[in-house]
């Protein structure tokens, strides 16, 4: 990303893993998805930069973090979950139920087929 492009200030998040060019790097697709959702919510004014920074910082400073920083995006996802709950976009129990539903959907999906929420047997039933 060139320096003149209009990127979200989220790119300036604390400790964000970056390439030599200063762009965010992701080890796995879910990390990019979590990052992108956050960028989008911020762009739409769902939360401000300072609200996000505070939520992320709280997670990053919890005890028990990995010393190599490899759990950075786990913290990111936890921060995003808390923030959407705090903003009453969803409730904790609703989100937890969906997490488990996606896990059942993954287990219930034949190999090589895209995993969709409808594959959760409890949801179909």
């Amino acid at each position: 990303m060139s320096t003149c492009s209009t990127t979200s200030p989220l790119v300036a998040s604390a400790e964000l893993p970056k390439s030599a060019d200063g762009d965010p790097v992701f080890a796995e697709p879910w990390q990019a998805a979590a990052f992108a959702m956050t960028v989008r919510l911020h762009e739409q004014g769902v939360f401000s930069w300072s609200e996000w920074a505070e939520a992320l910082s709280a997670e990053l400073h919890k005890p028990g973090r990995k010393s190599d920083g490899s759990d950075y995006y786990d913290c990111w996802v936890a921060a995003l979950s808390h923030l959407v709950e705090q903003l009453s976009i969803t409730s904790g129990p609703e989100l937890e139920a969906l997490v488990r539903s996606w896990q059942r959907a993954a287990e219930g999906t034949p190999h090589g087929k895209p995993i969709v929420l409808e594959n959760d047997p409890l949801r179909r039933g």
Binding site: A36, I89, I115
Partner: peptide, 29 residues
Amino acid sequence: DNHFNDVEARVKALETVLSEKGLIDLAAI
């Protein structure tokens, strides 16, 4: 491949809830 660990499932759950509320669309993501 057909197993979501906790964090992967959580990201999918957030995607679901946020797109249901019209706050994100998957194309934009």
